[in-house]
Simulated scan of single mutants.
Amino acid sequence: MTYAVNCSILLTELPLLERPTAARAAGFDRVEFWWPFAEAVPNDDDVDQFIAAVRDSGVTLTGLNFAAGDMPRGDRGLLSWPGRQHEFRDNIDVVIGIGEELGCKSFNALYGNRVDGTYAQEQDELALSNLVFAANSVARIGGVVLVEPVSGAPRYPLRKAKDALNIISRLRASGIENIRLLADFYHLAVNGDDVEAVIADHAAEFGHIQIADDPGRGAPGTGALPLAEWVTSSRKLGYSGVIGLEYKAPASEAFNWVKHQSAAV
């Protein structure tokens, strides 16, 4: 299959380390994760157990987030968060270690929310500095850093594709090539972006695609988004990567749409 199951949002009825095996049992051979630990720098035993859980399940890890803070409490990344620069940079070595062990080369760096009492420009300059550091670091294993617009987080400044693309353009102008857009069609649609135009203009440059339907962030077919059409267009225009399944659904019915679809997403 060309899909990667996001095991941080799907199969959550199971302990995290059991989810790769459950994804494999459901017929998938690729998985992706948000940062799977509570700390930016977890202990070695926890990292080893995560690596073993993925490897032993027979799936490939195709995507991993850098540490993003406390996501359940509303954090959305450390890139632009003053005072947490060392935490983010220390996390990079752990990310690279996991990527090297499991063959993962795509790493999502969530930008971070706006912080009270800090100028937006200061945060943006910090984010650019951290992105340069991250991109140069993962380059040694052939890695790519992804930048993602996000919905549902009012203080997150990257809302539409152009917001992320502006940052990517600035970095490429300074010689950083291994940075790309993560096109999450759900987030873009919810934020009012013209998804068809984004695909037409940038599909060949996408670093990754993720999907969920709207309303509800459910499985494809539960809402009104033309996900199959968007994926087909992206592929025709040059996107050749996997499709990340990043939606909410009970494990018992999470993948029913795959069995019943008439046209592959």
Results as ranks from 00 to 15, higher is better:
residue 2 T to F: 13
residue 22 A to E: 11
residue 24 R to W: 11
residue 25 A to G: 00
residue 26 A to R: 03
residue 29 D to M: 10
residue 31 V to K: 00
residue 31 V to D: 01
residue 34 W to Y: 14
residue 35 W to P: 07
residue 38 A to E: 15
residue 41 V to G: 03
residue 48 D to N: 14
residue 53 A to N: 05
residue 65 N to Q: 05
residue 67 A to P: 15
residue 72 P to I: 12
residue 73 R to F: 11
residue 75 D to N: 08
residue 78 L to E: 02
residue 81 W to D: 07
residue 82 P to M: 14
residue 90 D to Q: 14
residue 95 V to R: 02
residue 99 G to S: 07
residue 102 L to Y: 08
residue 105 K to P: 03
residue 107 F to N: 03
residue 112 G to W: 07
residue 116 D to K: 10
residue 116 D to V: 11
residue 116 D to I: 11
residue 130 N to G: 13
residue 142 G to C: 13
residue 144 V to G: 00
residue 147 V to P: 07
residue 157 P to C: 08
residue 158 L to I: 11
residue 158 L to K: 02
residue 161 A to R: 03
residue 162 K to C: 12
residue 164 A to P: 11
residue 165 L to Q: 06
residue 167 I to S: 00
residue 180 R to I: 04
residue 184 D to Q: 03
residue 186 Y to H: 14
residue 187 H to L: 10
residue 192 G to W: 05
residue 196 E to P: 03
residue 196 E to L: 14
residue 203 A to V: 04
residue 204 A to R: 12
residue 204 A to T: 07
residue 207 G to Y: 07
residue 211 I to F: 04
residue 214 D to I: 03
residue 217 R to F: 06
residue 222 T to D: 00
residue 224 A to T: 14
residue 234 S to R: 03
residue 237 L to N: 00
residue 238 G to K: 08
residue 244 G to C: 10
residue 244 G to D: 03
residue 248 K to S: 12
residue 249 A to N: 00
residue 256 N to L: 15
residue 258 V to Q: 06
residue 261 Q to H: 09
residue 261 Q to Y: 01
